[in-house]
Amino acid sequence: MSEQLDILIFGAHADDAEIGMAGTIAKHTAMGYRVGICDLTYAEMSSNGTVETRKEEAEQAAQLLGLTVRTNLGLPDRGLFVTPSHIERITAEIRKYKPRIVFAPYWQDRHPDHIACSALIQEAVFNAKLRKYLPESDPVNVENMYFYFINDVYEADFIVNVTDYYETKKAALSAYRSQFITGQGSVATPLNQGYIERVVARDHLLGQKRMLPYAEGFVSKLPMVVDRFD
């Protein structure tokens, strides 16, 4: 029987979740939260690296972040579409791990797979609670769903102070050597032309708004609930 998660993060490719929220992941696993990542594809269309390389890098990043579980649905890279079969696969993953909180990529991004992933997760989170949808498994009502940024940053609804865990984020990103570091036989892509440095600058600028060294931003489609103002 699978272990129930507190947080389940979806990405189209291994490294998506790390780019957007590795600091937040590390912060929560350090506090004892059970956190998992589900990558939808093996990123087989990547210009650099191989599927096997990407699997090894994803596992290394998972260990650095203290994940409870990391899975991959093996859906087609550059073939993600809002189809019944894709929604079913993702819904089954949500029902398997019963997370209280789900994260998905923000719905605007330069990469079409990130946009498709966002739409798919929203559909699956909704369907997961329907008793008559895939009735062979029990419905799951996700308490909260939030969105993280990958390539393109928009206005955040809230930020998480990740200063104490930022070195872990950089280590997790550096695990993806095939993507972020130019090596023998690699070709130039936006990812290996100073991408990690730009992510660090982004998170530093976001934290600066609240006098924090580093922060990661998130969006909620629903109003945030506040019990009191401190």
Rank of each mutant, 00 (worst) to 15 (best):
H86W: 10
H86P: 10
I87V: 15
E88F: 11
R89A: 14
A92H: 10
E93I: 12
I94C: 02
K96R: 13
K98I: 13
K98H: 13
P99T: 11
R100C: 11
R100W: 11
I101Q: 14
V102Y: 02
F103Y: 15
A104V: 10
P105W: 06
Y106W: 09
Q108C: 06
Q108W: 09
Q108A: 09
D109S: 09
D109C: 07
D109Y: 04
D109T: 10
R110E: 10
D113P: 14
H114R: 07
I115G: 08
I115N: 07
S118Q: 04
L120G: 03
Q122N: 12
E123K: 13
E123W: 01
E123S: 15
A124V: 01
N127K: 15
K129P: 01
L130W: 09
L130I: 15
L130N: 12
K132H: 15
K132Y: 14
Y133F: 15
Y133R: 09
P135E: 10
P135R: 07
E136S: 14
D138W: 04
P139Y: 10
V140W: 11
V142L: 04
M145S: 14
M145K: 13
M145A: 13
Y146K: 03
Y146R: 04
F147I: 02
F149A: 01
F149I: 03
I150S: 05
N151K: 12
N151H: 15
D152K: 10
D152C: 07
D152R: 10
V153F: 10
V153W: 06
V153K: 04
A156C: 00
F158I: 01
F158G: 00
I159V: 02
V160Q: 01
N161F: 01
V162C: 03
V162Q: 01
D164L: 08
D164H: 09
D164N: 14
Y165G: 04
Y166Q: 08
E167K: 14
K169F: 03
K169N: 04
A171D: 15
F180P: 02
F180K: 00
F180E: 00
F180I: 04
T182D: 13
G183I: 08
G183F: 07
G185T: 01
G185I: 02
G185F: 02
V187Q: 13
T189R: 12
L191V: 05
G194K: 09
Y195H: 12
I196T: 10
I196H: 05
I196A: 06
E197I: 03
E197G: 07
R198H: 08
R198S: 11
V199H: 04
V200G: 06
A201D: 11
A201P: 00
R202W: 01
D203V: 06
H204T: 12
L205E: 11
L206T: 03
G207P: 02
Q208C: 09
Q208W: 08
R210F: 15
M211K: 14
Y214E: 10
Y214Q: 12
E216H: 02
E216Y: 04
